Amino acid sequence: MPLSFTVGGATLNEADLVAHMVGAVKNIFSTMVFIDDLADSYPLDKPVSHFTCSISGMVGLGGDCSGMVGLHIPEELAREVTASMLGMGLDELEDEGDVNDAIGEITNMLAGEIKMIFSGRGMNVCLSTPSVIAGKEYSVEVVSSGAAVVVPFERGEQRFLTTLQLEGC
């Protein structure tokens, strides 16, 4: 069943959120990461909560609407994104700290774009500091009875996910 709820007196549906997320991700990657060849492949064919050799950035939403914004990206693509964002070659990345910082910052930018949806409807929404999880194998599960929007993106053979969990809007 498609997501639909009232935000600031206006109905916001899943298609609106997906369109905003797609536009935000493509804009962030184009202007900040200098990558223009992303394709969105919404809807996601099956739920994903288990990641292998990946990095996940997460930013919490609080205030009039609570939830979580996430970016889940394979390590190899995360390294390419970081190198491009920093104007460096892959061989110039010295440690995983730069990669974690870049993924956290991209997630923060995406959360800021999503926050604008709610702020534009008169809601007060605050963002948490980004958190980053990386590993060879891990699971991310948001304990929530709220709604979720997951938008997959592809760059060549690589795929990453952006997520929005909402509770109490």
Rank of each mutant, 00 (worst) to 15 (best):
V25D: 01
E96G: 13
A111M: 01
D98V: 05
L44T: 02
E75C: 12
D16Q: 13
M88Y: 13
R79W: 02
I103E: 06
V22M: 07
V143K: 11
E141T: 13
V99A: 06
P74E: 14
S4L: 02
E105L: 07
G87N: 11
C126W: 01
M58C: 12
L71Y: 00
A111S: 02
S119L: 13
Y138G: 10
P2K: 02
C126A: 11
G122T: 15
M32F: 13
N13L: 04
H50T: 12
A148K: 11
G89A: 14
D95Y: 07
D95W: 05
M21V: 14
K46F: 11
I133E: 05
G135Q: 11
S30Y: 08
E113Y: 10
L90A: 03
G122S: 15
G89L: 05
G62I: 00
G122N: 15
E105I: 06
L93E: 03
I35H: 05
A147K: 10
G57I: 01
I35V: 14
R79V: 11
G97K: 12
G120M: 05
S119K: 10
C65D: 00
F51Y: 15
A147H: 04
Y42V: 01
G104F: 00
M21G: 02
D95E: 07
V33Y: 13
D37V: 00
S30P: 00
P2H: 00
V59P: 01
T107L: 03
G135F: 10
G146N: 07
G97F: 00
L38Q: 04
H72P: 01
V142D: 01
S4K: 12
D64P: 04
A147T: 06
C126E: 11
V125I: 11
T31V: 14
V25G: 01
I55V: 15
L127T: 08
K115V: 02
Y138H: 12
E105Y: 06
V48L: 13
G67M: 05
I117K: 01
A15S: 13
V99N: 02
D101M: 11
P47H: 10
E76T: 09
V132I: 14
E92S: 15
A147L: 08
E76L: 09
V125P: 08
F118C: 04
N108R: 09
R79C: 08
I73L: 12
G67T: 05
T129C: 04
A24G: 08
S84R: 09
D36V: 07
D36H: 14
V149F: 06
F51N: 02
S4P: 00
V7T: 05
